[in-house]
């Protein structure tokens, strides 16, 4: 499934040629469709609606005559409340539209009013979420690589320009940014510096120390223990980075390699901007 696939939309049609739907039934229908991940348009005449788009549509109504014939991206169906969600699911399958909710939409959103294009996020993220466009402007390129519930990159942004709209608190959730928030962000970076420059250099240094300590006798269990110790310390300081995210980080060697790649990418983008 590509994240660019267009989702099915359900239209509750109550205009000319269809009888109105009672408000309680309308509420039940809309809520059940939303909870199954389907967008809903309630069409009427009192206010404008947005113009049509290429989304596949399931149009349901209490038709006074036979509904119009099916078109390539439109199906028409009688309003049948108990079976509405199943009908939407059947239409979604028939149109080969993506399954909603298959991926929790957790990803960074950049506030370009605040972003200074400093590339700290690109340097920091090991999962390839960030990249630059042809104008060397930072952008989110692979949002489905982002680790669910991890707001770590927003904490290294000196301008609090990175939002996760589903985060619990501001300014990461999009709330206004206060001076104390900015100072707090700086403090986070200072904590990182205390750890040894940055998170990944810390991991790299520990990896080097472990390598010299254990030499050829260093086994995978000891390496894992070292990594867990380091990550546990980091998790305690950062506070809200999920343990499963930390444990899904690549090996220390891979981290070092990826960090160098990301730093080089950021440096190149800054040099050419």
């Amino acid at each position: 499934m590509a994240l660019t696939d267009t989702q099915l939309r359900v239209v509750l049609y109550e205009g000319t040629g269809a009888a109105p739907i009672e408000s309680d039934d309308r509420l039940t229908a809309v809520r059940s469709l939303l909870e199954r991940g389907f967008g809903v348009t309630r069409a009427g005449a009192a206010r404008p609606l947005a113009p049509a788009d290429p989304s596949p549509l399931l149009v349901v109504g209490r038709w006074q005559d036979a509904p119009p014939a099916t078109e390539p991206n439109i199906r028409w169906q009688s309003f049948d409340l108990p079976n509405l969600a199943n009908a939407a699911e059947a239409a979604r399958s028939g149109f080969a539209a993506p399954t909603p909710g298959a991926w929790k939409p957790w990803f960074p959103v950049i506030d370009y009013d605040r972003c200074t294009n400093c590339m700290q996020c690109l340097s920091f993220c090991l999962f390839g979420v960030y990249g630059v466009d042809t104008a060397k402007q930072i952008q989110v390129q692979n949002n489905d690589n982002c680790k669910t519930n991890c707001p770590a990159c927003s904490r290294v942004c000196p301008e609090a320009a990175i939002m996760f709209p589903k985060y619990k608190a501001g300014p990461i959730n999009g709330d206004v940014v206060s001076d104390s928030d900015l100072n707090r962000e700086k403090m986070k970076i200072d904590i990182s510096a205390l750890l040894g420059g940055d998170v990944y250099s810390l991991l790299r240094d520990r990896s080097e120390r472990a390598r010299s300590r254990f030499g050829k006798e260093r086994d995978s269990d000891k390496a894992l223990a070292e990594r867990q110790k380091c990550l546990t310390k980091l998790a305690a300081l950062a506070g809200d980075i999920p343990p499963e995210v930390l444990m899904s980080l690549p090996s220390p060697e891979e981290i070092a390699r990826k960090a160098e790649e990301a730093a080089a990418k950021a440096k190149a983008a800054l040099a050419n901007s």
């Binding site: 809309v30 967008g39 949002n143």
Partner: peptide
């Protein structure tokens, strides 16, 4: 109300998909 409206399950999901809607 008797108003037309658009309801989406999750704006974040639509944004992530760059959904044309």
């Amino acid at each position: 109300s008797n108003l037309p409206f658009e309801a989406v399950p999750d704006l974040c999901e639509l944004s992530a998909r760059r959904d044309p809607s």
